[in-house]
Amino acid sequence: MNRTVMKKTMYFFAIPALVFYLIFWIFPILKLFQYSVTDYNGFSTDFNYIGLDNFKDLFASGTLGTSLWHTILYTVISVGLGNLIGLGLALMLNMNIRGKGFYRSISYIPTLFSAIVVGFIWSYVYMPDTGMITTLLSKIGFNTENINFLGNYSTALYSIIFVEIWKNIGTTMIIFLAGLQTVPKDLLEAGEIDGCGPWRLLRNIKLPLLATSVTINITLSLINGLKAFDFPFIMTSGGPGTSTNTLIFSIYKMAFTEQMFGKASALGILSFLFIMVITGIFVLNMNKREVSA
């Protein structure tokens, strides 16, 4: 078989993937742009083109600002705290301790459950009066009458962020652990001979060699945070009030609850652009750091 025939054959096999890509990716995005400048309600075939009114309403009503702030807060805390805890667990479970295989398995278990299961479990854990946390607190003498983690405007979002971290900590830990096991032992021994303590070994040897693991973990947790929907939907339905409304949840609420599909499409475009810009900037910066490291 000559080269020309091989190239034609390769293009032929690429056609199904290209068709799939056009139908399920390009076409929906084009329809999203079309609906974003209409008053389409998601059901009626009659709708009007209203230009940029949907985008103006999003800015004027504060929906975009509120959802964006909650999403940024959700992402920053889950990325920062989740990776710190994951790195700490990986460092501990990389040590020569008894039963470390068991502890690694226990740490990874939450990752195996679906978000729906985790959300329902933690909803019961957080329940006022009869929840596990309030029950334990009352047993040791605390007054739990006014404790309502998911029903309090100031604690609901942070309670959900904790569940996000708990759910994904196993994946973060495993990736860091895999990176730590590739660090050459002779390099660590040389550092110890030179008088480096645990902190200097971590800062000067381990972390630079974990650059790829750091990039992977932060990228994954960044994407999870920016597209947060499942836990706000399952555990609080965006409440109390709008305290746990994220960008993706607001899109869902506008489209399927308030039947403002056109405005939801406009918010979807803005959310898509925001996520793409943030993720792109981060990946470029992290790649530069990896090269310099």
Rank of each mutant, 00 (worst) to 15 (best):
223 I>C: 07
223 I>T: 11
223 I>S: 06
224 N>H: 14
224 N>A: 07
225 G>Y: 08
225 G>Q: 08
225 G>H: 09
225 G>M: 05
226 L>N: 00
228 A>K: 01
228 A>I: 10
228 A>G: 09
229 F>C: 05
230 D>F: 09
230 D>C: 06
231 F>H: 03
232 P>K: 04
232 P>T: 14
233 F>C: 12
234 I>A: 02
234 I>L: 06
234 I>P: 01
234 I>W: 04
234 I>Y: 02
235 M>N: 12
235 M>H: 15
235 M>S: 10
235 M>C: 09
236 T>S: 15
236 T>Q: 11
236 T>N: 10
237 S>E: 14
237 S>L: 14
238 G>P: 05
238 G>N: 03
239 G>Q: 01
239 G>A: 05
239 G>W: 01
240 P>R: 08
240 P>G: 03
242 T>W: 06
242 T>D: 13
242 T>N: 15
242 T>V: 07
244 T>E: 06
244 T>K: 01
245 N>A: 09
245 N>C: 11
245 N>T: 14
245 N>P: 02
247 L>H: 06
247 L>W: 04
247 L>D: 09
247 L>C: 15
248 I>N: 11
248 I>F: 13
249 F>P: 03
250 S>T: 15
250 S>R: 00
250 S>K: 13
250 S>N: 12
251 I>S: 03
251 I>K: 11
251 I>E: 03
252 Y>A: 08
252 Y>F: 14
253 K>H: 12
253 K>V: 02
254 M>E: 15
254 M>P: 07
255 A>M: 06
255 A>C: 11
255 A>K: 05
255 A>F: 05
256 F>Y: 13
257 T>M: 07
257 T>G: 04
258 E>Q: 14
260 M>A: 06
260 M>Q: 13
260 M>L: 09
260 M>T: 03
261 F>M: 13
261 F>S: 06
262 G>R: 07
262 G>W: 00
262 G>A: 09
262 G>S: 09
263 K>W: 03
263 K>N: 10
263 K>D: 00
264 A>W: 00
264 A>Y: 11
264 A>V: 13
264 A>D: 00
265 S>I: 03
266 A>R: 00
267 L>C: 02
267 L>M: 15
267 L>T: 04
268 G>A: 11
269 I>E: 11
269 I>K: 10
269 I>F: 08
270 L>N: 04
270 L>F: 12
270 L>S: 04
273 L>P: 02
274 F>V: 12
274 F>N: 14
275 I>M: 09
275 I>T: 15
276 M>V: 10
276 M>F: 15
277 V>Y: 07
277 V>I: 13
277 V>Q: 06
278 I>K: 04
278 I>L: 08
279 T>W: 07
279 T>G: 10
279 T>C: 13
280 G>L: 10
280 G>M: 07
280 G>V: 11
280 G>S: 07
281 I>R: 05
282 F>D: 10
283 V>Y: 04
284 L>H: 13
284 L>R: 14
285 N>C: 12
285 N>F: 08
285 N>V: 14
285 N>G: 10
286 M>A: 15
287 N>L: 12
288 K>E: 10
288 K>Y: 03
289 R>S: 12
290 E>K: 14
290 E>Y: 01
290 E>T: 11
290 E>D: 07
291 V>W: 02
291 V>C: 04
